[in-house]
Design a protein around this nucleic acid. Structure first.
Lengths: 252, 252
DNA sequence: CGACTTGTTGATGTACATCAAGGTACGTGG
DNA sequence: CCACGTACCTTGATGTACATCAACAAGTCG
């Protein structure tokens, strides 16, 4: 399932040429920061769709930055009920939450094949000690994650089914757009209606019916894994509004 | 509503004698950290119940640590629907989220009279540059906040009304216990059923009915603002389980 | 060998009956 | 007056059941 990438440096992307660096939505690093990150990085990880990268209740020795692919962060109750907290896209950082209790309170599962950048958690301290700007970025990242959860909590707590669906779909589309995974207002979503249902706190059946209602509005289309925004204003209106994300944002 | 405390140092608690320092659930500071914090602190703020300390959509020049009193962090939709994200207790840090977009994405409102420690946001950078241990604490705090939101999201998304109510009430009780606001398994909650409803994503009427069912189970009692845990195991069982919090935890 | 059936599986679509939660209304009590 | 309590009816969401559809593997036949 999980395969460590070929250790030969030739196969690994050097941080200086990291594809994410080209993203205009992500902040630039100084040479000094870049040198540190290059030394901090311990390798790359290739994971197949379906792999559990981090498991609720366990400690992980690693932190990851997503280079490519999609994942979900989710929590499972003892009786099996499941809630997706958020989706994970390229440039997102995962594993930080394990710092709080020493173990993860949620799982992270790959939705598609992924490539991740691996950092050893035990050297996190060096980052804080030597690179306050990166330390600040980590706080920023944790805080952004909190904001997304807050927005999701409002959805699940106070919005009806149609608003919720419109909101997440638009939200995911905009996030994908930021890392240039869209073209012609289309993205390929590697997840199913069941995932959407688990993210929205709804049943599969009701998700399907509501999705059908959304399609009927002609604001968007979702067929064969491809999501297309047909009328961005209409979709934003159905969603109520939409979060903005500051650009450029840090990513480590 | 908001009154800056008397600027005379005699009226302000010196950080070395901060009442929170005595809490065994909070981590100890080194003398060096303490000196920095004492210099970082710009004053104290006394706020009456009902005061809006931070307002969704605005930037705040200050960060706060709660010395005493209760507050809520909440978001309001354009049409007035409201969702409480979390409750704020002594030793909690607020305002950090404003870093992400430059402005707060939620409001913070005092539920009781409060005393807060004030820090100037513009000097936050000095903390990161000179005190990595405190920088780490801030990331930790942001991450803990995220965890609490995640837990709440599971509640609202996947638990039924009775479980939700049992979960928050027990959760708040345990948090209060950690900062010694309880005695004989009782706490004084300064909020109403409407607050609970807004936190749980439920209507007031349904909250009331469910609360009544919870009381009927004899696991807990809530009358005249006083909440009492009668059977902790039973309450934990109704809640499904309960989050743990690492002790000692940082607080700044 | 290739083309065609068949069976399987996972995702999606739809029709009920049922139920948990919402909304309105109108009590009480401090 | 505001918080709480409760009755009544309505509705949005659930659960079960079953149909459809595409992808895929195995086997069959020309």
């Amino acid at each position: 399932m999980v395969t460590a990438a070929c250790p030969s440096p030739a196969r690994q992307v050097p941080c200086g040429k990291c594809p994410l660096r080209a993203e205009p939505s992500l902040r630039d690093f100084s040479q000094d920061e870049l040198d540190f990150i290059a030394g901090f990085k311990s390798g790359e990880l290739t994971a197949e769709a379906g792999t559990t990268l981090l498991m609720q209740g366990t400690a992980s020795a690693h932190l990851y930055t997503v280079l490519s692919g999609w994942a979900v962060r989710h929590k499972t109750l003892p009786d099996g009920r499941r809630q997706i907290l958020n989706f994970v896209l390229p440039a997102d950082f995962i594993g930080l939450q394990g710092t709080v209790l020493g173990e993860m309170q949620h799982s992270v599962e790959a939705l598609s094949d992924m490539v991740l950048c691996v950092f050893p958690r035990e050297r996190l301290w060096e980052l804080y000690r030597g690179h306050p700007s990166l330390a600040f970025d980590l706080t920023w990242i944790a805080s952004r994650e909190e904001q997304m959860l807050g927005e999701q909590l409002v959805s699940v707590g106070r919005r009806n089914a149609l608003e919720r669906i419109a909101f997440v779909l638009l939200h995911l589309f905009l996030r994908a757009e930021q890392v240039r995974m869209t073209s012609e207002n289309k993205v390929e979503f590697p997840f199913t209606q069941q995932h959407l249902a688990d993210a929205l706190g709804m049943s599969l059946v009701h998700t399907n019916k509501t999705l059908r209602r959304l399609m009927a509005s002609k604001a968007a289309r979702w067929k064969n894994r491809t999501f297309e925004v047909l009328d961005r204003e209409a979709l934003t209106a159905l969603a109520g509004y939409q979060m903005k994300d500051r650009q450029p944002r840090p990513f480590i």
